[in-house]
């Protein structure tokens, strides 16, 4: 069963008399274990897509199903609870709380949600992300890459079924960017999560199982050269 399903979804914004269709009617499904890239220039509607998929806003038409549950018509309070249970966000600007150290960032999640990652798995996660030594550091003491890795740890910590990453590599150099992508890839393949990465960085495509392109609000699956080359490299 698809973990994330969008059925005939569109989003229309009204600005005065004019209507802007930020996301044209589109259907989309993602299975567990898939790493999916959504690429497109800024203003193309990829953030709109991501926020609808993540339950941050409702579509104008259509339905959004997360793990089989229709969230389209839920109230914000219930959607917040779904986000907490099912979705991990890795945001462009780091989503860390400035006055909490790395360990406390994760403790905060324990305060608001039960059944988070077990201690053993968590240690594994720390090691794979290379942040085990940073537990006492505050976000302001971390480099951009370290912050992004902590953000990923935070997103994975609540055991979500879907991870939505908005430009997760924006502030990183190439090496770091590839590292981050590998981690997201691992999360998908090892733990059966759906990982969706929104980016305009085409270098990242090689890590992805599927690539969608979004232009002027129109989402289309891409069967590009990069895609094929990535398929080749997998075989």
């Amino acid at each position: 069963m698809a973990l994330l399903q969008l059925i005939n979804v569109n989003k229309v914004f009204k600005s005065g008399q004019t209507e802007i269709e930020a996301l044209k009617t589109t259907s989309f499904a993602a299975e567990g274990g898939e790493l999916i890239a959504i690429i497109g220039p800024s203003g193309s509607g990829k953030s709109t897509f991501l926020t609808i998929a993540g339950g941050l806003q409702s579509p104008s038409n259509g339905e959004v199903l997360i793990n089989g549950q229709d969230i389209t018509h839920l109230k914000e309070k219930q959607r917040a609870s779904i986000r907490l249970q099912e979705i991990g966000f890795v945001l462009q600007s780091s989503n860390l709380v400035p006055f909490l150290n790395v360990q406390q960032q994760l403790q905060l999640l324990d305060k608001v949600k039960k059944n988070n990652m077990e201690a053993e798995k968590l240690k594994e996660l720390y090691d794979s992300l290379g942040i085990a030594d940073l537990m006492g550091s505050f976000p302001s003491d971390l480099s951009g890459g370290q912050r992004q890795r902590v953000a990923i740890a935070k997103a994975l910590y609540t055991n979500p079924s879907i991870i939505l990453a908005d430009e997760p590599t924006a502030s990183l150099d190439s090496d770091r960017a590839f590292e981050v992508m590998e981690m997201l890839k691992k999360a998908a393949t090892n733990n059966g999560k759906t990982v969706i990465v929104v980016t305009h960085d085409t270098r990242l495509i090689q890590y992805c199982d599927k690539v969608y392109k979004i232009t002027d609000g129109q989402l289309k699956q891409e069967v590009s050269n990069a895609m094929e080359s990535s398929s080749f490299s997998n075989h």
């Binding site: 941050l56 917040a80 609870s81 986000r83 907490l84 989503n95 305060k111 608001v112």
Partner: peptide
């Protein structure tokens, strides 16, 4: 913005 990010992650307004 900090509260907003927390709310995006699903932390409730009540908390």
């Amino acid at each position: 913005s900090i509260f907003g990010v927390m709310k995006a992650q699903g932390v409730s307004s009540g908390y």
